[in-house]
Simulated assay, not measured.
Amino acid sequence: MSNYTEIKKINQRVETREKKAQKDQKSPLLFASIFATVIAPILEAITIGYLGTTSSPVDFSSISDLSQLNTALELQKNWELVFDRNSSFAFIVLAITVLLHIIAAVLAITKSQRHSHYFDYKELSDTYNLVVTSYGHTQDRLSSIVASSLAISLSVNGVEDVIALFKNNHNEGGEFKRVKFSEAFGPILWPFVQYREKIFGYNGDSLYNFAIYIYEEEQDVLRLAYRECDNRINTQNRDWQPGKGHVGITFMQKGLRICNDVAASTELSPSEKSSEYYKSFVSVPILAPEDDESSNVKPIGVLVVTSSHIGQFEKEIIKIPLETLAKLFGIVVHEVELFYNMSTEGGRDENSEE
């Protein structure tokens, strides 16, 4: 069991105790408050009022003979007996009421403190939840960084292999033999396709698509040179004019672009928004080794990664890996151009595309 799974289980237990604490503090606190503030004071007032009534009901001032005196004394005696008996009961009631009043007051205070501590606990729980979420996100980022580092290392090896292939690809007569884009770009792109789940967060339901467009200056068009995608995608392999669509816009602006909801974009055409295969994308310009985003030199092409899921890409995670990959493609195309220019008088050969 992973640490993250264990922390999630702990978090569930914390939430259960939190709900129970919230439920348990309501009813006792309400009863204790009502009794301490309403019921107990009323009972105490009634009891004390009764005990304060000490005047005798017999009026001795109106007695005129001995027989009336005897009768009055008998009534006084009976009243004192009843009063003594009721007074004892009243004292017991008063004592119990005062005791319950004290208990209710203490209970109300402690429950109130518990209620206050509950919110302290709630804040602590929320902070804990944030830590758990951050831990999971950090774990995902760390996994992505490790996978990206491995993919970049393998892609660099691929660049070296491709350049070596071009250098050694001469026949006995000295004629330079063309190599297809799949042979040049495939080994470099493969590690990122292989580790796409770790780097970009793809899952079984998200359809991936990696495409490389190379700019053809004579026709002023960005043409698809190489693609690796999910076999469930029905590809069209269309060309893009500079400034048109996310490929053309990225080419013109020479900067990384991310769109995590194609349908909400104000820059894309209706045809781009309607595709079920492309819900989010990231586009990166492919620049020559000596070029940068601030120059007026046109990019070599554009690297595009798309997904059928909304919100697939997080800039902080994918920016460096994809920009590095685009630089590797720029190095390869630049080196290939140098070899071609040394071996032939032409530039890029249109027949080199797949």
Rank of each mutant, 00 (worst) to 15 (best):
S148N: 05
S125G: 05
S144T: 05
S144P: 05
N157I: 07
S149R: 10
F166K: 13
D120I: 04
I152G: 00
S112H: 04
L150A: 10
L142N: 15
F166V: 08
F166N: 11
I152Q: 10
R114D: 02
F166Q: 10
D120K: 14
H117E: 06
D120E: 10
Q113W: 07
N129V: 02
A164C: 05
V146T: 14
F119Q: 03
S112G: 14
S155I: 07
R141G: 03
V162I: 03
A151G: 06
D161L: 06
I152A: 12
K167T: 09
Q139H: 13
H117Q: 11
Q139V: 12
S143G: 06
V162P: 01
H117A: 09
S134F: 06
G136A: 13
S155W: 03
Q113D: 08
E160W: 04
N157R: 03
E123G: 03
V156R: 04
S148L: 05
N129K: 13
S155H: 07
S153T: 09
S148R: 07
L124M: 06
T138P: 00
V159N: 08
E123D: 12
S143M: 11
R141I: 13
N157M: 06
Q113I: 14
N129H: 15
N168P: 04
V159H: 03
G136I: 05
D161P: 03
G136K: 13
V146R: 15
T127S: 09
L142G: 10
I163M: 10
L130Y: 08
A147T: 02
L165T: 11
A164I: 04
L142H: 08
K122I: 01
S143I: 07
H137K: 12
S125D: 01
K122F: 08
S153F: 12
V156I: 15
H137I: 13
V131F: 10
L130V: 03
L150T: 14
V162C: 03
N168R: 11
D120Y: 02
S155N: 10
Y128V: 07
H137T: 14
S155T: 09
H117V: 02
